[in-house]
Amino acid sequence: MSNPVRKVKLSDTVASELLTLIRNGTYARGSRLPAERELSSRFNISRTSLRDAFRQLELLGYVEIRQGDGTYVRAPDSDTLSRPFQGLLAGSQQAALDLLEFRRMLEPEVAALAAQRARPEHAEAFQRALERQREAAARGERLSREDLTFHQLVAQTAGNTVTLQVLGTLRALLSDLRTSALSGHFPAITLAQHERIAQAILTNDPAAARSAMLEHLNAVVESSDLKSPHALD
């Protein structure tokens, strides 16, 4: 017996067509989409269905609906891309540990790639990032924000756009964990580990960069509160 054919909603079809027009540049980032009346006529669709299509694109991060002004084209950001996964992490200690495990699989290789591609001009950015960490550590502050900046710098040095997007999404997911479970109470240790990673990258030593990053991420898990039975209560 054949499976019933799923009827495709008009709003789904229009959302797909609009997405194609956005991606090919017909509707550029920052531009306002044509008025609802014009688009509903063009696609032969009701305004209600058109608004459903807009909402789908809004969830994907491709448009911003401004009440009383119109619908504007935008590019998806890390916060938007992380939304489907946020519910997975809510209250789930194992999911949080799985997320950190995924990070340990990915970021050491990103550090190794950064070491292959680092140039002398990258040194200044790493020096500035480390100096900000030293200043924060001297004030006795957590290095949450500085840690995010450092790991983003490593990804930028690696120069892979897909990796940048994936790690941006990962950082957005980790933002809540940083306040609820990732203790970050050892800024001096974090700083020392970041210095080793930076040195390996700037001396173009992929093996050392990979090893230093893995050591750092292992320490993040070991010093976290995620192993506590009530870590995410």
Rank of each mutant, 00 (worst) to 15 (best):
R42N: 08
D79W: 11
F54E: 08
R74A: 13
Q94H: 10
P76S: 03
V73W: 01
I45T: 14
R103N: 02
L39N: 04
A90Y: 08
R103L: 00
Q86M: 09
S78L: 04
R74C: 10
Q56F: 10
L89F: 02
D79I: 13
F85Q: 05
E101R: 11
L88C: 04
S41R: 14
L89Q: 03
R83C: 08
F54Q: 04
A90S: 14
L81Q: 05
Q94L: 10
D77Q: 05
Q67F: 12
L57I: 01
A95P: 00
E36G: 06
A90I: 07
A95V: 02
L88Y: 07
A53S: 10
L57V: 03
F43W: 06
L60F: 12
P76D: 00
S41Y: 14
L100H: 00
V73G: 02
R66F: 05
L106I: 13
F102E: 15
F85D: 06
E36A: 14
L59K: 15
L39S: 01
S41K: 11
G87E: 10
I45H: 05
Q93W: 04
S46E: 06
E64A: 09
G61D: 00
T71M: 02
A35Y: 15
T71W: 01
A90Q: 14
G70K: 04
S82G: 01
P76E: 06
E58K: 09
L59M: 14
A35Q: 11
E36C: 11
Y62P: 00
L60Y: 15
L81V: 08
D98L: 15
L89T: 01
E101I: 12
D77K: 02
A75P: 06
D79P: 06
V63L: 06
D52Y: 15
R42G: 06
R42Q: 13
F85T: 06
D69P: 05
T48Q: 13
S40N: 05
S46F: 04
S46R: 07
P76I: 01
Q94C: 09
G68Y: 05
P108C: 03
L59Q: 11
N44Q: 11
D77T: 08
M105W: 15
L99W: 04
Q56G: 09
D98I: 06
L81R: 07
E107V: 03
T48G: 15
L59Y: 14
A35T: 10
F54Y: 12
